[in-house]
Amino acid sequence: MKKVWSVIAGGTRTAKFGLVVVAFWIVVAVFAPLLAPYGVNDIDIAQRLAPPCWAEGGTMAHILGTDQLGRDVLSRLLYGSRISLMVGVVAGCVGLVIGVTLGLLAGYFGGWVDAVISRMIDVMLSFPFIFLAMLLVAVLGSSLVNVILVLGITGWVPYARTVRAQTLSVREKEFVKSAGAMGCGSLRIICKHILPSVIDSAIILGTMDVGTNILSEASLTFLGLGIPPGIATWGNMIATGRDYIFTAGWLTVIPGVALLVGCLSINFVGDWLRDIRDPRLRGVDNTKANQNLEREEAT
């Protein structure tokens, strides 16, 4: 535990910010029912479109105002974090696992394995996301789990491409060749020698994907393909608030800011993860170590 704290304390300022915000949202998501002042779907039509407390006409009764049906924005934001974070992170993980696996196989084995996987990538790239999502939802039916699956299945391509390219270069390094010469099997070479060197860019991609996934979920929901209506999600709130953007801007701005800060923080955490995973960067001044690293890689 002490070690964990020292690693966190050694992180950069952005990393600490990211960790704090991510921790905050996790706590909020877990304890949403206790924290929210109102029920998620409590309608108070008399109070509809009440502005947030700092704006003119706002009251402390609804700190972040209410929406067009008189539902409390703060409560919906807190509840929404549950679905949004889950969809963003889990769908990202599904895509990451599929993409990294296929990328490693394509890059390591080459030949017909690579040809098949690369063609799959090409097909995925030329397929419109919404069309594929509609197809999958039509087959699987619409539910939270299926939305996550759909986003994962359509989102693996960037991981596979990045990992494949990196695998191609790492495979030629002497330590990988020496592992083969010493008698390591393919599985061990891939997992122990190649994966640790290529996983970092996939993690970075994954943290950037979280935000995209949250918004994609909103567009699926908007089309009636996603999460059943009535369940609060950030993407959902932004999408429905769009109609009132000039008269009641807070309906889009507030969940928008939550999304922005959340995604930014997850990105920071991703960068931090990469840094602590690299033994060459551990426990040293970051800028200096990076310069050394660049020099080493250049030679």
Partner: peptide, 13 residues
């Protein structure tokens, strides 16, 4: 085998 380049023949991780 012992390789030529001691900088790339050891897994940095």
């Amino acid at each position: 085998i012992i390789y030529q380049d001691p900088f790339s023949s050891l897994n940095p991780r």
